[in-house]
């Protein structure tokens, strides 16, 4: 079911603005942001902390509404003026920053959950399929363990399997590897690249880590400090499949530097803005 189909999963973000209104003070998180993400593209979003990256992800996933603009998925409107909050659905799967495997279900039960509640498979079929997919991801031995019993790397891998079993059009990842050590992280990167090469699923990936962004992405979108707009788009022309040797190539270094220059400027602005707010 996870066929390599790169003709779906195109996201079109058009003039999106989001204004939060906590405590009666308007805070503009995203300002007139437009971005086209092609079907089967790995789009990495980087930017200073609190710049509104997660706001975009939440809007696509249907967790939060938008104030203005429209978001389309494969030409269908997810949210727009008539419907500020997108419906949540299994066509857009989120992998959360802190991990959200249900701790009271085993890894296999977690993976099987989606197809069962959607009525797509019987319980036995779903558990069976979950076992197969976990084995493909190299964690078949862990199928009957609870998330609390496995390492964070394995849990995150299982979470991606839980998303993939639903054959989503888009994977939305919000800094999924943030709290991991560099070694685990590099293994996670290779495993995600392997998943991508197999499924060609569109990936919307938020991160602070520029090397991660260049290593994984087709394009790296650098956002401005709040309110978020696209500042610069770095096209990553390193051919796929990529592996850890890519990390030492000159082109990789150049691209990281290019992205770094763009982000640094914004990070300084964000830092100063933060100081002013406190003062």
């Amino acid at each position: 079911m996870t066929s390599a189909s790169s003709n779906r999963g195109a996201i079109s973000i058009r003039n999106v603005t989001k204004i939060y209104d906590p405590e009666g003070v308007n805070v503009m998180a995203v300002d007139d942001c437009s971005l086209e993400i092609g079907a089967g593209e790995v789009c990495m979003i980087v930017g200073p902390s609190g710049c509104g990256k997660t706001t975009l992800l939440n809007a696509i996933a249907g967790f939060h509404s938008i104030t203005e603009g429209e978001i389309y998925l494969d030409g269908e409107m997810l949210c727009g003026p008539d419907r500020p909050l997108a419906n949540q659905g299994a066509d857009r799967m989120v992998v959360f920053q802190h991990g959200a495997l249900f701790p009271w279900k085993t890894l296999a039960e977690n993976v099987a959950y989606g197809p069962i509640v959607q009525g797509a498979m019987s319980k036995a079929e779903a558990i069976d399929k979950a076992g197969t997919m976990l084995s493909e991801a190299g964690i078949g031995d862990m199928a009957k363990k609870y998330p609390g019993e496995v390492s964070s790397g394995m849990a995150r891998r299982a979470e991606i399997v839980r998303a993939l079993i639903n054959d989503p059009r888009v994977l939305l990842l919000d800094e999924p590897y943030r709290a991991m050590d560099a070694l685990t992280k590099s293994i996670m990167h290779e495993s995600l690249l392997e998943v991508y090469d197999r499924t060609k699923v569109t990936i919307f990936f938020i991160t602070h880590d520029l090397e991660e962004a260049i290593f994984l992405g087709d394009r790296v979108v650098v956002m401005t400090t709040r309110p978020a707009k696209t500042k610069k788009i770095v096209d990553v022309d390193i051919p796929r499949p990529r592996d850890y040797t890519t990390l030492s190539s000159n082109r990789f270094r150049e691209l990281v530097q290019e992205a770094k220059d763009a982000v640094h400027e914004e990070a300084v602005k964000a830092f100063e803005a933060g100081e002013r707010e406190l003062a």
Binding site: A100, F102, Y113
Partner: peptide, 23 residues
């Protein structure tokens, strides 16, 4: 996030109750 994940995965309200709220 468990509620969000459950909704993402296509749960109906009774699924959320039985699989998230209770456990």
């Amino acid at each position: 996030e468990y509620f969000r994940a459950a909704n993402c995965l296509g749960s109906k309200p009774h699924h959320v109750f039985m699989h998230i709220v209770v456990p």
